[in-house]
């Protein structure tokens, strides 16, 4: 089972690293969205510090949704998705592998760059640390939930926008607890409770999302 998972992860990582432009544009989308807010709101550090958690989190959410559109699309187009469906491996496991690989190449760079963006918003180092932890817990959950929508909208016209429309309401808890944890720690309340909730959401989505996404894939490939 581990071997299968590893095969899928390795396959998708190889493909992603051979076609890096996608990854870089996704990362820059995140950076640009976060950098646009001060231009729209004004440079007062007081205000920026207040909105920073929300801005970074909403931008991470948008960037994840944008990237997720492609998670199954290329496999669907060249027929390798139907081959994956026909392997004697449990489909949810293959889906987990694909999501994991996708998160490693789209989610992890966001997490790594986020402290630098936090500095733009004058966040203290403690808060930056919490921001990284919440994104580390939250972005995989976003990928998992978003994969369901990506599987449902596979091959449909306007799939990307439609996917965002379907998935974003479902990701609201992640957003609330993610931004909430950063905010709570910024105001000195401590965000541990939020972090536990995020971990719980991550576990729940890790259990259910691959099953739902696998079922959705079978429907979409038919």
């Amino acid at each position: 089972m581990i071997k299968t998972l590893w095969t899928v992860v390795q396959r998708d990582l190889t493909l992603a690293l051979r076609n890096r432009s996608d990854l870089i544009s996704n990362l820059f989308f995140f950076i640009i969205v976060v950098s646009l807010f001060p231009l729209g709101i004004g440079p007062e550090l007081e205000t920026l510090r207040l909105i920073a958690p929300g801005v970074v989190w909403v931008a991470a959410l948008l960037a994840s949704m944008l990237a997720l559109e492609r998670i199954f699309a290329s496999d669907f187009d060249d027929g390798s998705l139907e081959q994956l469906l026909l392997t004697p491996q449990p489909l949810p496991l293959l889906v987990v592998g694909k999501i994991l690989a996708h998160w490693l190449v789209t989610g992890v760079p966001l997490v790594m760059i986020s402290p630098i963006l936090g500095i733009q918003y004058d966040l203290s180092s403690d808060v930056l640390w919490i921001l990284v932890v919440t994104l580390l817990l939250g972005t995989p959950a976003l990928s998992l939930i978003g994969a369901i929508g990506a599987a449902l909208t596979l091959g449909l016209r306007g799939g990307g926008v439609l996917n965002a429309l379907l998935v974003m309401p479902l990701t609201i808890p992640v957003l609330i607890f993610g931004a909430g944890a950063v905010e709570a720690s910024a105001s000195g309340l401590g965000g541990e409770g939020h972090l536990y909730m995020m971990a719980a959401i991550l576990v729940v989505s890790l259990v259910f999302a691959p099953l739902a996404a696998a079922a959705a894939l079978r429907i979409s490939v038919e």
């Binding site: 309401p169 808890p173 259910f208």
Partner: peptide, 28 residues
């Protein structure tokens, strides 16, 4: 056929999420 079953999955995913959403919104 695809529409029927895809819609059903979406609703079920939504219904599992509703309590979580409601709870998190309340907390928020």
């Amino acid at each position: 056929r695809r529409g029927d079953r895809a819609g059903a999955i979406l609703i079920l995913v939504g219904v599992i999420n509703i309590p979580i959403i409601y709870y998190s919104v309340q907390w928020w």
